[in-house]
């Protein structure tokens, strides 16, 4: 009679200490603390930051296309362009505040570290969003309820943001960045700016009408916009 073979858990992913962009992008999901460690110890290159940024924009485009299909093919195409722009503009507008907030909070980042932190954070959001894109697509093509789609997209984005927040918290493990209150505070600003940017680039879920084109010039706060969409979705 054969002895039962011992079942072992799968090995924990081990990274060889490489800071190549591809490895770093993979590490964002599998071992995010390794990315924060490389950024904190200034081992990651600017090239990695650009890689994060391009990856983040592509991932946002995929999610944008998936959710935009709710409004038809045209809306899907438009959202594939708009979703990355929301992330990109939010990042550009919040870049100075990340540099200043981290310094005021007592964990000063250099310009390179600021760039890497911001882009890796956006890449993290993008990665999670691309993971949720099939779910968004499934509901986008199988429901007619605007309210439901609004909630779904906000929840998906909220989940991605929550993971990005958790990733940023990891920077506290590095002794020089233990006082990361400034970075946490910045993240709140980033979230609010992203919501306002999404409002600014509306409509993202519905197809354009003759009165409202692909972009609207009407000025609105994001809370007023979401409230109007909620009412309209009845």
């Amino acid at each position: 009679m054969n002895e039962p073979t011992e079942i072992k858990p799968p090995p924990v992913p081990v990274f060889d200490g490489s800071t190549r962009p591809g490895v770093m992008l993979e590490a964002l999901l599998k071992a995010p603390e390794r990315v924060t460690d490389a950024i904190g110890k200034d081992r990651a290159s600017v090239r990695t930051g650009w890689f994060f940024l391009i990856g983040a924009l592509l991932f946002h485009a995929v999610f944008g296309a998936a959710m935009g299909l709710f409004g038809g093919a045209e809306a899907g195409l438009a959202s594939a362009f708009k979703a990355p722009l929301v992330g990109l503009f939010a990042l550009v507008l919040c870049f100075p505040s990340l540099y200043v907030f981290s310094s005021v909070g007592g964990a000063p980042l250099s310009l390179r570290q600021t760039f890497l932190t911001a882009t890796s954070c956006l890449a993290m959001i993008g990665l999670l969003l691309v993971g949720l894109a099939p779910v968004a697509w499934l509901f986008a093509v199988s429901t007619a309820s605007l309210r439901f789609m609004m909630i779904l997209v906000l929840v998906a984005w909220g989940i991605a943001v929550w993971f990005a927040r958790r990733y940023l918290n990891g920077i506290r493990l590095i002794p020089e960045f233990q006082q990361s209150g400034g970075i946490s505070c910045w993240f709140l600003v980033f979230v609010v700016v992203s919501l306002q940017m999404a409002t600014c680039l509306r409509p993202m879920l519905t197809a354009p009408t003759p009165e409202r084109g692909w972009l609207t010039s009407e000025k609105k706060f994001f809370m007023a916009h979401f409230s109007d969409c909620w009412e309209r979705g009845k």
Binding site: C94, Y99, V193, Q196, C200, F221
Partner: peptide, 15 residues
């Protein structure tokens, strides 16, 4: 540092 953020809200949020 928050001037760009305020500018966004001014340009896109206030009619």
């Amino acid at each position: 540092s928050l001037a760009p953020v305020s500018l966004l809200f001014m340009l896109s949020g206030v009619p």
